[in-house]
Amino acid sequence: MSRFNADNLIVAESIIRRYPVAKSALIPLLHLAQEQDGYVADDAMAHIAELVGVTPAEVVGTCTFYEMFKRHPVGTYVVNICTNISCLVLGGEELLHHAEKSLGVRAGGTTDDGLFTLEDVECIAACTEAPCLQVNYRYRYRLTTDDFDELIDGLRTGRITDVPHHGVLARIRQQIADDRLAGVVAPELATEAPVWLAASDAGGAGS
């Protein structure tokens, strides 16, 4: 399965409708594909190309720029350990080395059971809580090596249940009821000042 399934196709179409230009939906749709399959499959990219009206090559071009998109299957849990400056000075690299030993893979690798992919990442914006990591983009703060082992054990045994599988980001989607939508403004069609501005400022200078 790599093209969008029926449910996700509906989601994809609702996302595309929110943008004045369909190609803007490309990154959200790549995330949706990754949510469905755990990675971004070639067929998914071909499907996205059809949906937004660009070539598959353009989708690949965008996809390969962004490091969150995995073009091959990865572990159920992607463990991202920050080693950037604030974490470095408080043991981020040591935590990473411990993780490499404890999981038996180098950064970038996936464990044989397919459960964990380990990554050495750049700053994840939790600098006051160093050293920190994310599992499938869920934070864990101020970790000791014991905390790390406990986390891995909890995920392995299923004791930790608040981390969805890789690919799932926000579990809540934006929903806009049709009667509440202000209306998507196509760049080439909306050539007038918006009504509230025109009403208050006849010249429409808006400054």
Binding site: I27, F65, Y66, E67, F69, A170, Q175, A182, G183, W196
Partner: peptide
């Protein structure tokens, strides 16, 4: 979702002629 339903975002905000959509967009690591 809450703000749209309560009339703070979207069409005719708070009963005025001010209308605007706010779309949540997200990046992918760069």
């Amino acid at each position: 979702n809450e703000a749209y339903a309560a009339g703070y975002v979207g069409k005719n905000i708070l009963g005025t002629d001010f209308s605007v959509d706010i779309i949540l967009h997200w990046g992918a690591g760069a």
